[in-house]
Amino acid sequence: MFDFDATLPLMAVQFLLLAAILNVVFYKPLTKAIEDRSDYIRSNEADARERLAKAENLAKQYESELAETRRQYQATIVAAQAEAHTIAAQKIAEAQQEAQSQREATQKELDQQKQAAMQTLEQQVESLSREILDKLLAGV
């Protein structure tokens, strides 16, 4: 069972040879493959992370632009409403003024005509009363 002979050194040499061969055909290429793969994954991940960050920045930028736009259009609406209000108020005031002045003018004309009518009426009353008087007095 314990007979040592040339098997021992030959086996050692053979083992070292095996280690050398496997180093060339197994350890080096597959270690390279594994490390290349992890490099690839790492760089891809970094790339993806960068892109994600970029996309998030863009989204943030768009959101702020959107908010800005929203603020602008609200401001525009408010300004337009205010302008419309002032214009409407102005127009209303003008119209009221015009109506007032027309009413006054009409009133004045009416008064004049009334006065004129009164005058003519008065004259007619006078002439009529004179005629009546003449007629009454003629009988006497």
Binding site: M1, F4, T7, L8, P9, M11, A12, F15, L16
Partner: peptide, 12 residues
């Protein structure tokens, strides 16, 4: 299961 092999490996 041969002592020569295991001793060779151990000496290495």
């Amino acid at each position: 299961n041969d002592i020569n092999t295991t001793v060779a490996l151990a000496l290495l």
